[in-house]
Each structure stands twice: as structure tokens, then as C-alpha cells.
Design a protein around this nucleic acid. Structure first.
Lengths: 356, 356
DNA sequence: AGACAAATTGCACACGTGTGCAGATCCCTG
DNA sequence: CAGGGATCTGCACACGTGTGCAATTTGTCT
């Protein structure tokens, strides 16, 4: 069944044509100093002319090194991941590693299949960048017996290497910015309740409010799930709160987009009647109406850092277990000073944990 | 240098423990009928207990089959590609193939490296989904000597297998819709001039206008590049045209997003003063203000179709060289009837090439 | 019990590449 | 010219898995 591709030429073919043994060819192509420079050059030319391409499988079989890193993500459809993957890829390529992509689409069966594929390919290390759940199968990954680095992991897992954006610092940044604009009634539309990032952002929100002497009304904290609907619901319910907030800090940009839409429908102008700030700085944040002010995660850097970390682990070096990278504020047009209401005297406080 | 992962157990280890030869183990695990069912079962249990994982490299070395398909894309950051990749992946997995991702980021050097990596991995086939250029290195890919299927290729390449959205039909759909709403002065903001998709959409636009007895003013056709800036520029220049259009057909959604932004800045209401229709139906099209009416490309289906096509090619079957998949209209809120101006008597024409 | 077929197993080689070690070749020195 | 070291090359085996063929065991029938 099936046409098989024409057999590619091997070092033995080259050896025959060059009148040497395949060992010499192997050494010549690998640049070994054990072979006569003139012979080596002749062989290299011959190989190029014959269109030789080394067989990765055969090589990895004998060297027991595959130079493959497994990259586990839930789905490519998450626009947040693209930049992370780019960073990972960049560093991997520089170091001569290749990426084996394993997507699960949050389907347990496929997750298992993905892990099996990683195992059969003998990946040397794994990076998990599944922004959502999916860490259910972390034990399976650990069974591979290779180093693992998590990006933005959502569960507390103290003994595992990980790289994450500093969600706490980002939240402080966002809320400080709103307070600096004069807001005192600031709401938070949350993300997935169990997510580590959500808890950290909530804490950052609460502590920054407290540090400014502002007591957030519990009714200003809305549950959510990180999707646009959450933003819409949040705004709808916020409209019924007695002391209506003048600004909303959203768990992420998708939530903020939903919030902006609901605000518009309710006849609220952004930012005049309501300031909205997001988190993530996804591609689309620059094109909303008005363009969304948000907290940018250093996605590309996170990807690079995670891969560098993995490389060092592969070298047997010791590395810090949990790296936090700082976020930065991207000021666009969805936030402004509150229109009505008393602007209280609030010192322009900025937490000590600022950008370097 | 570097810690090497603990040697995984092989069929020989299992053979020793089971008191049989490695051949028997191999056959038992592969489900060969040549081995005693009881023995086979015993071996399978033992293998599971010992945590055996087959070595893909060794297997592919002897079978000369890798079960790997190369997937070439420019960048993951293109939100358009995610669904395509998902479709490809789905079919590949069902058929027992794995994907080797090669991204080039439009860097010629990396393109070459990517192709080399594909060659060394001995991929059995290649799918190219680089929505932008990048087909400069198609010759390199062809040198691999494996079947290639292109998705939405942008150059005329009659002898190459390809799957594409029917851009012409999509354009007819869009313009017919606008005409049906009563528009007679319809502009087109184009995409990359050399792109096949752009030429087809332009032709669809022109022919539909002509078929309706409408003579498009050449000044209504604006050059572009498929990015938001193009939409902004297009609208700006359109404002200076004597007979201002009441509707704009944009090459793609990113262009439409730029157009909407520029229209808003110019004080035009969408859709009351200006109807805008896009093309692609990217994720964010549903979240613009107003939500963007657009022509949806069957991205997921295109991915599935391309992979199915490749599978059939691998089987040695004959398949049609160029498959066109129909687009469909997604009605949201960015289009409406023109406010002022005479609504001419135009039969609600729909080209014969409609959705099935 | 013996003969024969069928079922089961093991031997040996193959895939393409890398490498330790022994052998071959070259060059230099005395 | 002999000796010896340095340089280069080839032999042979290894990696883990699959498979044709021969050898062995099992089962069946007379």
C-alpha cells in the first residue's frame, strides 16, 4: 500500500563513490580532525553534489540524543500563545534544538496521545505553555523523566521549574495607574477562580487598594472566566451596584473587550463614564474602540526565558525554580480621570515592586 | 557535557525478562498473528508494567516510514492560521501521522534551515500554509521529493496540489450582499497586489458590479496590503473622492478594522453612513464595534481537506490539483442600507456560483 | 506410535550513522 | 636504511526495531 518515497542516498553511497569507507565519510561530514583535510573536502563536495541529507533518526539512534524539545499547548487558537512560542522557538533554534508541537485542545484523550507521541519521539525536555487547565496530565509528563519548564502555570507546584509573568506586580501597576488618575471606586472582573494568575491579580488589586486607604466594596469584585461574556456580565451586574465604580480592572483583554461592549450597550462612554483596563496586551488590544489600555505580559521574553532555562537544565546546571518576569503598562485610550464624584486626596502611590 | 536521560527500556529488556527472543516481543507488541495469543498477552502486560515506550527513531529507521508530515507556516502569530492548523492536525492524528512544525518568520535563512530540518526528519509529505509570501523556497521543498499541498497559495502554480477558499465566489457574495442592501457606489480596498487572492477578489468585485449594471469608478479601488493601515489610508483617500461610496468591501478583516477606525475618526457612523464588509472572519471580527459583517473562509475545513488530500497522495491515489472551498456570508452589524442617495432598481442578483 | 501439517519461536540480517581500536600509511630523524 | 612516531583509514560493533526464513514445538490424524 502507498507509494514509498525514493530511497535517499546514505553515507554508504557516498563512500562507495569516493572509494573510502563509510566511517571516513561520517567523520568527514561531521568535521572530525581525524580525517585528511583534502579527503574531507573532497567528500563534502561529493556529498553536496549527490544531494546527501543526513538521517536524523539514524543519528539519534546511535547518539541517544534527539535534539527535540516537546512544546505542549492546549490550542494554537489562543492568540496569547503565539508570541510565547516564537520566543521558545528562537532560542531552541539557536541552540540546535527542534520543536515537537503537542496540542491537546483540552481533550483528555488527545492529551494522553500527545504525551505518548512525545515519549516515542524521545524528546529531551518539555515546555508546557497551556494557559488554561491541562496540567491534569502533568504526572504523565513527569513520567517521561526529562526536565520540564512550565510557562504561566495555573496551579501551585512549588517543586517544578516555571516562568511566569508577575501577575501581582502587573495588578499593582494597573490599579496604581487608575488610582493615579483619580479613581477611588475600582472594580475587578475576575478570571477563572482556581487560576493562580487570577488569585495573584486579585491580591494585587486588594492590596493596592488597601495601601491607598481605599476599602473595595465586595460587590465590586465580579466572578469571571477570562472570556468576553464574563466582561459583559460583569458590567451588567456592576450597573446595579449602589456605589457604582468609575473604573474596572479586568482579568484579561478578552474580558475587557466584553466589558467595553457591554458598557457601550448600556450607554456608557469609555473612558469618560467608565475607565477600563485589561491584562495581556493581545494583538487586538490596539484595535478596539477606544484602543485598550492594558498590562502587557512580556510574552516573547517569557518564551525565551523558559527555553534558556530548559537548556541550562539539560546541561545539568542549577537554575531558580520559579522565575517571575515583570509586566509593563501600555497606555492607550480606554482610561481617563473620573468625571463626576469627589476626587479624593490619594498620594500617587506606587508599590515598591516596580519595573526595573 | 550535559546530563543524559536514563536509558529507556527496549524490547530486548522485555525479551530477557520474559524468556523469549526480541523478535517475539516485537511481534507481540505489534499484534502479529504469528505469536501465541497467551504469550502475546503475557508480553504485553510485562511491557506495560515495565513502562516500555517504543522508540520512534528505531522503528522508522527499519520501516523507512516516519509518519511525520511537515507543516510550513510563516508565523503562528497570524490568527488566521490557527483554525487551519487545527483542521490539519485533526486529520493527521486520525490517520496516525504527526506534525512537524516549521516556521520561517519570513526570514530566508530560517526558511532554509526549516526545510533542512524537514529533510533530515524525513517527513513523508508537506503542507504549506504560509498565508504570505514565503513560496520563494517552494523549489527547495520540491527537492524533498515528497507530495506537497498548498493552502491558499498566492501565486499561480498550476501543477501543484492546493486547497484554497474560493475568493472569487466570496467576493461575489460580499458585493451581491451590498447591492442587495441597495448600495450602488461600492469601493474595494485591496490586499497585496501580487496575491492571487487579491486578484480573484478584485475580479469578483468588478464582475459582480458589471453584472448589476454598475460601473465602478476606478477611484473606488484603493491599493492596500492586508493590514489595518491600508484600511485607514483607504478610507482617508475615499473621503476625497467626488462621488463618495456608501459601502466598502475590504480585502480582509484586518483591513476592515483599520477602515472602521478611520471612518469613526472621520465622524462617519458605521453602518449608517458607511457600510463595511470584511473577509476571513477572524476571531475578533465578532468583537469589533459594530461587530463586523464579513465573508468567512472555511478555515477548519481547508485544513482538513488539505491533509486528506495529502493522505490520498501518499496512498498513490489521484486527486484534483486545485480544490476551491466555498465561503459564506456572516451577517453582523457593519452593513446596512445606504441612507441618502437614490436606490436604483437592481435585481437581487446572485451569481450562479453559490453555496451548495 | 508415527507421520505430517500447523502453529510458534529464534536466528540472523537490515535500516543509517557514530566511534573505539587496530592496522596502514606517511613523514621525520638518526 | 631502519626505527619510531604521527597521521590517517577501515573493520567491526553498537543503537532499537522489524521480518524472511529456518528450526522447533504443538496438534491432528491414521
Amino acid at each position: 500500500m502507498g507509494r514509498r518515497p525514493a530511497r535517499r542516498i546514505s553515507i554508504k553511497d557516498i563512500a562507495r563513490k569516493a572509494g573510502v569507507s563509510h566511517s571516513t565519510v561520517s567523520r568527514a561530514l561531521r568535521g572530525s580532525s581525524l580525517v585528511n583535510p583534502r579527503t574531507a573536502e573532497r567528500i563534502r563536495r561529493l556529498a553536496a553534489r549527490m544531494g546527501y541529507v543526513p538521517n536524523a533518526a539514524a543519528r539519534s539512534l546511535v547518539t541517544t540524543r534527539t535534539s527535540i524539545i516537546g512544546l505542549v499547548i492546549t490550542t494554537l487558537a489562543d492568540p496569547f500563545l503565539a508570541e510565547i512560542v516564537r520566543g521558545v522557538e528562537e532560542v531552541a533554534l539557536e541552540a540546535g534544538y527542534r520543536l515537537f508541537l503537542a496540542t491537546s485542545n483540552a481533550d483528555p484523550e488527545r492529551e494522553l496521545a500527545a504525551v505518548r507521541a512525545l515519549a516515542e519521539s524521545r524528546v529531551e525536555g518539555v515546555i508546557v505553555a497551556s494557559s488554561r487547565v491541562g496540567e491534569l496530565y502533568l504526572p504523565h509528563l513527569e513520567a517521561l523523566g526529562v526536565p520540564i519548564v512550565l510557562i504561566n502555570h495555573q496551579r501551585e507546584a512549588p517543586l517544578i521549574y516555571s516562568v511566569a509573568a508577575d501577575s501581582y506586580q502587573g495588578a499593582v501597576l494597573a490599579v496604581s495607574y487608575l488610582i493615579g488618575l483619580g479613581h477611588t471606586r475600582i472594580a475587578y472582573i475576575a478570571g477563572p477562580p482556581m487560576a493562580r494568575s487570577n488569585r495573584l491579580r486579585l491580591t494585587g488589586y486588594q492590596e493596592t487598594m488597601a495601601a491607598a486607604g481605599l476599602m473595595p466594596d465586595p460587590a465590586w469584585i465580579m466572578e469571571g472566566n477570562g472570556r468576553p461574556e464574563a466582561g459583559e456580565w460583569g458590567i451588567q451586574r456592576l450597573l446595579e451596584v449602589p456605589l457604582r465604580p468609575t473604573a474596572v480592572f479586568c482579568y484579561n483583554d478578552m474580558t475587557a473587550i466584553g466589558a467595553m461592549r457591554a458598557a457601550r450597550r448600556a450607554g456608557l462612554r469609555v473612558p469618560e463614564d467608565l475607565s477600563i483596563i485589561g491584562f495581556d496586551d493581545i494583538l487586538f488590544a490596539a484595535y478596539t474602540e477606544p484602543p485598550l489600555t492594558t498590562i502587557a505580559q512580556p510574552k516573547y521574553e517569557m518564551g525565551r526565558t523558559a527555553m534558556s532555562m530548559l537548556l541550562r537544565l539539560l546541561q545539568g546546571e542549577r537554575v531558580p525554580a520559579d522565575l517571575q518576569l515583570p509586566c509593563r503598562l501600555v497606555e492607550r485610550a480606554s482610561c481617563g480621570p473620573p468625571l463626576e464624584g469627589s476626587i479624593p486626596m490619594v498620594p500617587h502611590l506606587l508599590a515598591e515592586r516596580r519595573l526595573p
